[in-house]
């Protein structure tokens, strides 16, 4: 419709204005802030060029946080996605009560991170926590670990708590993808003598490609901006061992009076994520063009 070019803009005026004020403009402000030494308190601050970014590269806690983000990413992509897919395949079969099962697995998706964090603090508490006391009760006390206080395992404990929710998300994405797999195709393969594994690998999985791509990108993005669980359960502690970029940024900006430095962390986080956002958009839009 090229008749009146102003029409779409009239519809876009209000949404774009609001989006610009509360989302787009703040992003640029954060960019600018990252070149300053503003402490979040003083009325004045100076432009200090790339000082903050230089400091990042010699900051061991920044590296640690980045490193932890990589762990989150790997666990989300190579752990949660296959698990989500597995559960989706299992529950996609026709059996009585399958909906109840799906509902129950999905339940954590509806919870606030504050509540999830609280619930998991009782799971992971070292002395009375459900996990440790359960292991002790069944005679497996070697598996009882100080989940939140041992710097070596704390990140994995946090990832587990987050995955409780995230796996359910992956499952839902795959369940929807499975709906789009034509039954006839699978049955045809069955008639042709393909076994279960072959049917999955050669027929179903290729059909799940779009769902997989979306699940991967969503998980990558979520793993890179992980914050709430970390903040509620450990605040990145003990001594930053479970910190992730978002958490470190928050601590630097709002606890340590380093708004400028915190902004530079946010910018780095943004730049890393941006690559994946591009992938997401390109796949989303390209598929659309091929179907239109």
């Amino acid at each position: 419709m090229k008749s009146k070019t102003w029409v779409p803009y009239a519809f876009l005026a209000l949404p774009l204005t609001m989006y610009a004020i509360w989302v787009i403009f703040p992003i640029f402000q954060t960019f600018v802030l990252s070149f300053t030494n503003w402490d979040g308190v003083s009325p004045k601050f100076d432009l200090i060029g790339f000082e903050n970014y230089k400091r990042l590269f010699s900051d061991p806690y920044f590296k640690l946080s980045l490193n932890n983000n990589v762990k989150w990413l790997l666990a989300f992509v190579f752990g949660n996605i296959p698990l989500g897919l597995g559960i989706a395949l299992l529950l996609d079969q026709k059996f009585k009560g399958d909906r109840i099962y799906k509902t129950l697995v999905f339940l954590p998706m509806t919870l606030s991170f504050v509540v999830i964090g609280q619930i998991w603090s009782w799971m992971l508490e070292p002395r009375y926590g459900a996990i440790n006391s359960f292991f002790r009760a069944i005679g497996l006390s070697t598996f009882a670990k100080p989940w939140l206080s041992d710097p070596k395992i704390v990140t994995y404990a946090l990832i587990a708590a987050a995955s409780w929710r995230q796996i359910a998300y992956a499952m839902v994405l795959f369940l929807a993808g499975l709906k789009n797999v034509p039954r006839e195709l699978v049955e045809a393969a069955y008639v042709d003598g393909a076994n279960k594994w072959e049917r999955f690998w050669y027929v179903i999985l290729p059909m799940l490609r779009p769902a997989t791509i979306i699940a991967v990108t969503v998980n990558v993005i979520d793993s890179l901006r992980a914050f709430d669980i970390v903040y509620v359960l450990t605040r990145g502690g003990p001594f930053y061992s479970s910190s992730v970029l978002a958490n470190y940024m928050y601590i630097q900006s709002f606890h340590n009076y380093n708004m400028g430095y915190g902004a530079s962390i946010a910018v780095i986080q943004f730049l890393i994520t941006f690559g994946f956002i591009l992938v997401y958009l390109l796949t989303a839009l390209r598929r659309e063009e091929s179907t239109v």
Binding site: P238, I251, H255, N256, Y257
Partner: peptide
């Protein structure tokens, strides 16, 4: 200084663990 305090206390706790 408040910033030093956070860094310092983090260090103390880290010492207590390792």
């Amino acid at each position: 200084n408040p910033e030093m305090a956070t860094v310092g206390m983090n260090g103390f706790v880290q010492f207590m663990v390792t």
